[in-house]
């Protein structure tokens, strides 16, 4: 059986909120290392990969592999009933029909309990190759969100060019063009404001801004976001969570520009 207790419902609420517009029905794969999710969007352009390590829960117990097929719209409805600060416990039997969610208020004696019916989801699981990326950029997640939103006002796509000079986000649209260039930057007092660019070779790729703006819904999960790029491979956008847990998005580049 599965029993996983989160100190704050907020974490799951934010994760689900960040991915629910991209993917609808997903398997939450539970085993003794934690709870994982991998799903592609309907058009097979983007892929979400979430890992909530067992260390992110206290306690965490999962004796055998259990796949919880959950509709994220349903999960959102139930999670809306949880206060951000509630303790959240997920429970399921070994061959479950439902997943049970319990929300406990730390301040009052209120206990809420919900069951969500599970779905049988036949999901294609993709192998993501280990990649030595040519460029890795760590930057404030709010900054990345702002750049994507600003450029989307002008264009559907953004080119991300990483060179010794820095990283340049550029777009061209009907009304004109725009670009934002960032250089490495260290803020001793506020390390969350750091921009770190690790480059082994110059990279230039073009991506759909609609997807990037969607990924940025995860910005509240982490002060920093990591962008990993190599020519002609999908972009990795990673939001690191506590205890080595993470929420990752992969986005296929536009080709033949």
């Amino acid at each position: 059986m599965l029993e996983a207790r989160l100190e704050q419902a907020n974490l799951l609420k934010k994760v689900v909120d960040a991915i629910k517009d991209l993917v609808q029905d997903c398997n939450f794969d539970c085993n003794d290392s934690g709870i994982a999710l991998q799903a592609m969007d309907n058009s097979h352009v983007a892929l979400v990969s979430m890992m909530l390590k067992s260390e992110s829960f206290s306690p965490f117990r999962c004796d055998r592999n259990i796949a919880l097929g959950i509709n994220l719209t349903s999960l959102t409805k139930v999670l809306r009933a949880a206060q951000n600060e509630d303790i959240l416990t997920l429970k399921a039997e070994d061959a479950p029909d439902v997943v049970n969610l319990v929300f406990e208020s730390a301040e009052s004696d209120r206990i809420s309990e919900y069951d969500i019916k599970l779905m049988d989801i036949d999901q294609e699981h993709l192998g993501i190759p280990e990649t030595e990326y040519a460029a890795t950029i760590s930057m404030p997640s709010a900054e990345f969100q702002r750049i994507c939103r600003d450029l989307m006002a002008l264009s559907e796509s953004v080119s991300i060019e990483c060179s010794k000079e820095g990283v340049k986000f550029a777009c061209q649209g009907d009304i004109g063009s725009g670009s934002v260039t960032l250089r490495s930057h260290t803020n001793v007092d506020k390390p969350e404001m750091n921009v770190e660019i690790d480059l082994t070779e110059p990279v230039s790729l073009t991506f759909s801004l609609k997807y990037l703006v969607g990924f940025c819904k995860a910005s509240s999960l982490s002060g920093q976001v990591k962008l990993c790029l190599s020519n002609e491979v999908p972009l990795l956008v990673e939001y690191a969570l506590a205890n080595n847990s993470y929420l990752r998005f992969y986005l296929a580049p536009k080709i033949g520009d």
Partner: peptide, 14 residues
């Protein structure tokens, strides 16, 4: 203009 690539053409079956 550029065409949108697909994730499945980069990431295959494990």
């Amino acid at each position: 203009t550029a065409s949108q690539g697909s994730i499945t053409s980069f990431f295959g079956a494990p």
